[in-house]
Structures are given as structure tokens and as C-alpha cells.
């Protein structure tokens, strides 16, 4: 019955949009938390040894892929997945 309300009542696409938003947003928070520690450490290293800027950047950008995963899920939800219908 609940499923009926969701599907027929037009809530379906709203819920998909909320889900897509949560997927990207929470992944973003996760990536941010990950980058926080690395970023602080990299700034410390670069202050002492500027030559490590490239390698530090490399390490700092690693967790950024997380948010792309979230985004991929969002894109699938928004564009490629048609449930129940």
C-alpha cells in the first residue's frame, strides 16, 4: 500500500531526487573528512620541503574519487534507472 502511494502519488521522482542528493552530498562529506587530515600533513611537509608539493598534491587528491562514486550513483538514479514502471 505504501508502495502504491509512493508510485501513484507522484512521490517516486521526489524520493529518487532526494536519494541522488544524499548520495553525492554524503560522499562529499566523506571525501572532505578524508582530505582534511592529509591536507594538514601535506601543508606541514611542503612548509619544510617545497619539493614535495607534487607528491603532496597527489596524496591530497586521492580521496576525491569518493565523491565521484557518489556522483555516479546519483547519475544512475537520476538518468538511467527506472524502477517499478
Amino acid at each position: 500500500m505504501v508502495v502504491d502511494i509512493i508510485v501513484d502519488g507522484g512521490m517516486l521522482y521526489g524520493l529518487i531526487a532526494v536519494g541522488a542528493g544524499l548520495a553525492t552530498g554524503l560522499a562529499g562529506i566523506g571525501a572532505g573528512v578524508g582530505e582534511q587530515g592529509i591536507g594538514a600533513a601535506v601543508v606541514g611537509v611542503v612548509a619544510e620541503e617545497p619539493g614535495f608539493l607534487g607528491k603532496g598534491l597527489f596524496l591530497m587528491l586521492l580521496p576525491e574519487t569518493l565523491i565521484i562514486f557518489g556522483l555516479a550513483v546519483s547519475l544512475i538514479l537520476m538518468f538511467a534507472w527506472t524502477p517499478f514502471v
Binding site: 574519487t65 556522483l71 555516479a72
Partner: peptide, 12 residues
Amino acid sequence: VSNLISYLRLLA
């Protein structure tokens, strides 16, 4: 696998 998915940033 994540290497490949990572390129979606070009679009995103």
C-alpha cells in the same frame, strides 16, 4: 575500477 570511474569528474 575506481581509476576508470574517476574520469566521470570530466563530466561532473
